[in-house]
Design a protein around this nucleic acid. Structure first.
Lengths: 247, 247
DNA sequence: CGAGCGTTTGAAATCGGTCAACAGCAGTGG
DNA sequence: CCACTGCTGTTGACCGATTTCAAACGCTCG
């Protein structure tokens, strides 16, 4: 991981991710102020940590590009992946509570994160109401996302969990301009399993089953959602656990 | 449920829950300002909803006394309880993201909640840095709490989940001045099961097993934690999923 | 006192986990 | 260019924790 200073071509004011990230709803003038806050970026290679459990919080982060996972590790070796994070999403928010990050954030591919120095950010948020509001919305949606995840782990069967996971990814990628039906899984079967509270073998078996049922095609980590309605019926026989999210 | 106007004897400035709620870290002068914001309370009878999924958000709430649960309902009838909430904790935060509450908040016993009109709150938070900071901390801790819950549902066995649930309650009650070893469960076996992602029969069986092992004594919903260390070992063979929380 | 939950307990069924073998592909170095 | 090695993913067989189904009990509240 290495820190780089943001050059002028690389500011929030020109970032296409503005619609997902902090600048939502800000005037150009206000975005310029945010630019003064975000003067640094961190480049991560696959496997690098953006931050680790226990480190003091100095900043929160916006993902510029790439994919990260956040995970909790238990002393006995087990670990739980609590989220996969795409460009425009914010990371490090769980560290605000006691000024130390609560989880590890690890890059699943080469990635880059914008550094938002948190103390400065709070000051600026007091001056720009819509920045403050957007930050509250982001935190709140993070809560909603986690609660949907809880619903998945607590109430759905393995099959349903995997289907809604695939649809959730699909939606989030689509919102970012990627194909909703065909994409690359940046995470291993084991990581998917951890996220969904099932074993990697079960993930693999389900992928095979979904393929046999004509729901998906999958080759390595390249997946194609063939029968969206079928997946929807599996996942959300119930509700749209996968749908809204980052606005 | 009925709304009542806060009388002067019932303000944040005199509330013993200040140490858990919004006023943490505020000067007396600033707390007075918060008082002007919280002019109303809602009294709930057991079973009443403080808010329901889909209702527009107008306020967030601080629990004055009582116990609430928050739950997600799936169209097919299944539901997931995402949290049990004690005095001093804030509710409704998941509604900030899109201005509509995402879950139902239901009283498990007669309870009372302080109404924090959200728009006014954001305005005041811009004027009082430590209020803003405390709000961020509360949101962030809520995230941490949910992530611990995810860890529980995703990585622990039924036995471990129940043990850490009991210890988590114990800690939170202790922080509020109640006995950490003996308390009243406000929720049914079914609600515990929903929260932990297991069936009510499993909860019941585990209580019996814990009793036989000399870990607890339980009569109806009155529970006594006899062997804390034993429970700790079960729950947190791994880590202290139950420990920190609301500061 | 009776109705109706909520809870306990047992027995049978099952989903998913565990263990194990193997296949596929990627990277390394001869 | 081709073994060699290691990691990731697939598949099978068996096992077991938890669920499901069912029956009975005992509070609690009208």
């Amino acid at each position: 991981m290495n820190r780089i200073t943001t050059d002028s071509s690389n500011k929030c004011s020109t970032c296409v991710l503005g619609q997902f990230c902090l600048p939502v709803g800000l005037s150009n003038e206000d975005i310029d102020k945010v630019d003064t806050l975000v003067t640094e970026k961190i480049r991560l290679k696959k496997g690098d940590a953006l931050y680790r459990q226990g480190e003091p919080l100095t900043a929160v982060y916006g993902i510029k590009f790439g994919t990260l996972k956040t995970e909790y590790a238990l002393p006995d070796g087990r670990e739980q992946i609590t989220g996969f994070h795409l460009p425009g999403e914010m990371l490090g928010l769980d560290g605000i509570g006691d000024n130390h990050y609560q989880s590890n954030a690890i890059a699943l591919e080469d990635s880059e994160a914008c550094v938002v120095r948190f103390a400065d950010f709070e000051t600026l948020a007091r001056q720009i109401p819509s920045l403050q509001q957007q930050f509250h919305r982001i935190l709140s949606r993070e809560l909603t996302q986690d609660q949907r995840h809880l619903l998945s782990l607590g109430s759905l069967r393995a099959e349903e969990r995997l289907a809604s996971f695939l649809l959730n990814l699909s939606d989030r990628l689509a919102a970012r301009g990627y194909s909703p039906v065909e994409y690359h899984l940046r995470m291993s079967r084991e990581e998917i399993g951890s996220y969904l509270g099932i074993q990697l073998e079960t993930v693999s078996r389900l992928f095979s089953r979904f393929t046999d049922s004509g729901l998906i095609q999958i080759k390595q980590r390249h997946i194609k959602l063939v029968d969206m309605n079928g997946l929807l019926e599996l996942a959300g026989k119930s509700s749209a656990i996968h749908c809204p999210h980052s606005a």
